[in-house]
Every structure is written in C-alpha cells, then in structure tokens.
Nucleic acid binder design. Sequence first.
DNA 1: CCGTGCCTCAAACGTATGTTTCAAACAGAC
DNA 2: GTCTGTTTGAAACATACGTTTGAGGCACGG
Lengths: 224, 224
Amino acid sequence: MAQSDTVDRILDAAEELFADRGFSETSLRMITSKAKVNLAAVNYHFGSKNALIHAVFARFLTPFSATLETAFDDLEERCDGKPPTLNQTLWALTESAVRMPQRTDKGISIFMRLLGLAYTQSQGHLRKFLEQEYSEPFSRFMRLLKEATPQLSAVDRYWRIQFMLGATAFTMSSSDALRDILENKLGVETSVQEIAARLVPFLAAGMQAEDTMLVPSFEQAPVA
Amino acid sequence: MAQSDTVDRILDAAEELFADRGFSETSLRMITSKAKVNLAAVNYHFGSKNALIHAVFARFLTPFSATLETAFDDLEERCDGKPPTLNQTLWALTESAVRMPQRTDKGISIFMRLLGLAYTQSQGHLRKFLEQEYSEPFSRFMRLLKEATPQLSAVDRYWRIQFMLGATAFTMSSSDALRDILENKLGVETSVQEIAARLVPFLAAGMQAEDTMLVPSFEQAPVA
DNA sequence: CCGTGCCTCAAACGTATGTTTCAAACAGAC
DNA sequence: GTCTGTTTGAAACATACGTTTGAGGCACGG
C-alpha cells in the first residue's frame, strides 16, 4: 500500500470508540488495538491524543461545513432577498447532516454523538479548535436564526437557541441512556432521519412559543 | 468537633469540582486538596471514588425527590381527579428544584449541572445507582406527562420527552460553552429562575407542536 | 489514667495512562 | 544493489491515578 492506511484505521477506530465512551474514557491503547496498529503510531502520525481528537472532528466537520455553506447559499438564493423562515433554516441544517456521504451504516449517528460530546465534555482544547476552524458556518446559522425570528428579543433568542442546541446535542449523544429505559417498552427502532423529522417541529414550535412567562406561580396559573 | 466535618468538606469540594470538570476529569487529589483534607479520607469515609459520586448525588437528590413528591401530591389534589396540565406539571418540577434549600449561592446551578452530567457522561455505575434509588419520582413524572399529552402517540411522546430532557440538561450543564460566546455580546446575566421561566414555555410549546413532519423536503415546504 | 474506637496523616503500592526511544523493516530513486 | 527517507515494532519512560497500609493522634468512658 502506497500511502499506508494506518492513519485511516486509527481515525475509524478512534471515531467509534470516542462516540460510545467519550474522550477521557478512551485510551490510546484501546484505539490502537481496535485499529490493529502499533501504539506509537498515534503519536507518530498525529502528534498527540488531543491532535487525534481534532483530526477525528476535522474529517467529518470540514466536508460537512462545506455542504452546509452551499445549502445556505441555495436557500438564500431561492428566497431572493427575503430572509428564509425558521423551518427552512432548520431543515437546511438537518438535510445537510443527513445527506452527508456516510463512511459506515451508523455514520450519521456517530457524527451526531461526537458533536454532542464536543459541547458536553468540557474539553477546552476541543472547543477552542472548533471555534477557530468552524466559526464561519456557525455564525451564519446564527444570523439566519436571528433573521427568521425578528419577534424575539436578543435575550430570548439567545436562550432559546441554547435550548435547541441542547435538545439536539443531548438527543444525539444519549444513544444508550433513556433509549434503554423506554425503547424496550415501545419496541420500535427509529432512524436518525425520523428523529430529525420529529425534532425539527419540536424546535420550531419551542422557538416560536408565544410568551416568556416571568415570575410564575400557581396562583397566577390556575388549575382549569 | 464531635462529628468531624471532613465528610461535608469532601462532599462540598467534590460537588463543585465534579460540576465544572466532570467525573473522570476530577481526581481525588484535586478534591482532597480543595477540601483541605487528607487523600485517604475519601476512601476511609466513602470507600471509593464511585461511592463518593453516589454520595454527592444522594445529598441533594434525596431531599429533592421528597420535595417533588409532595409537589406532585399537592398538584394532583388541587386538580381533584382531572389530570394536571402540561404547564402545571412542568412548573411543579421546576419550582421544586428552584425552591430547594440551597447550601451556597450557586447551589441550584451546580445541582442542575450535575444532573446534566449524570445523563451525559456515560458512567454506567451512576445510571444504575440513580435508576435504583430514584425511579419512583421519575416514573411518576413520566405518568403525569403522559396524562397531560393524550393527543400524542407513544412514540412521539417518547421522543419529545427526550428533547425536553435534552434542552434542560444541556442548558444547565453548559455553563461555560455558548455562554462565553454569546453572553459577552449581550452583557446580561441571568439567574437560574429566569432561565427556568424561559425554558418552560419553550418546552411546553415544543411538546404540544402541531404535527410531526415526515418525509420533509423543500418541494413540500415552499418559500412563501 | 489508661485503654479503646474513631479519625488523620504521610507514604507507599499497583496499575494505567500519554509519550518517547531506537532499532528494524520497508519503499522508492538512483 | 545500495542508499535514503519514511513507517512500524517492542520496549521503556515518566507521570498520574485510585487505593491501601500502618503508625500516630485525639476524645471519651472506665
């Protein structure tokens, strides 16, 4: 083999292990033994474990952010002038994610789970890396959200974006938590596409909720 | 001192460190040096690091689940017979959380962040512990949610509950992630009570969103 | 006043981690 | 075939972790 596939085997193994164990809980020895490569190969090819984590993210985030850019381009062109709606913006995002070329059958869920972990596990270096490398599509998405919800105050919009990100990242990253508790009872399996199809209306409805209730209490919210 | 306060000092330090670093990323040496206590004290008083984690959760989860039980009792009594509404159920939960006696000024946010981590960091032992000890108030909350949303199919309700949990847990657990990016720009500080006041309407609206959009595409969702 | 039980302390133990080393194997160019 | 730069291999390194040990202190009941 001309350009050794050691690098890819490491990335594949690391991606999968990170996705279902987290970063700190995955050792280089687990990765190299799953990838059937020598332990030293990671530090040789990537330099450090943190750099390997960055490489895992870059491998799917770079093509994804390119796809996303063109999706946003298409959307804005289609709307010529008028700002896209909230639903359109959210769908542009989820369709870009779902339609990404997959390496494996479970590619998209690993993808989502890693993104969830990225925000959830407070790895300072990772956040710094992601902010530096992918701030542009992120900012653009934020701008679209702002234009799609002009009725919201900046503070309301800020928090509701937090809630959206939370619902998304958490759902995608908890493949084994509540799924075990409840999915057994229902006995149904759901694809990522179907989850997204359920998630987007939930997010859009929450984002456009009528009012922000302040100083709440049961006296002001009667029973009937 | 008759009953040494070592145990409480360890719990205080561990709680805070766990909350802003996660479990695996917090070592016993960090905890004991923050608590100004000997390293061996943790294993002496608690037996192991995992048992310490359980103790940290039990210290606030046990009184909280008691408070929650009476809040649900009050709510159901007030509604005599008729099932409580979704808003009432969500408010009963958040008010129980907010009105818990606080040990420190930042007590409630640590509380929330730990709960977020509990579902997010896939610590098998923690999930098992929480399920064993606190399954009853959890099941009761789920039952109330079911009765408050009879229009939803079981599958829809399952996923939307996931989304609610995600928005809540993630928001509460990401005290430093997006807050750094956006809160600087807005220059406002928000209390946990205010976050809850914004979160509940978001969740209720999402939970009661009209329809679950299936097989979505831009052809079926025109621009105007 | 002295022992008994509870607690603290410094030190060590065993293990696992990320990283480094350096010799061997390899590929391609001349 | 030989040389050169790149990649792999087994082993070791230094460090950090959770846990255990055993000596010492301290309070309290006899």
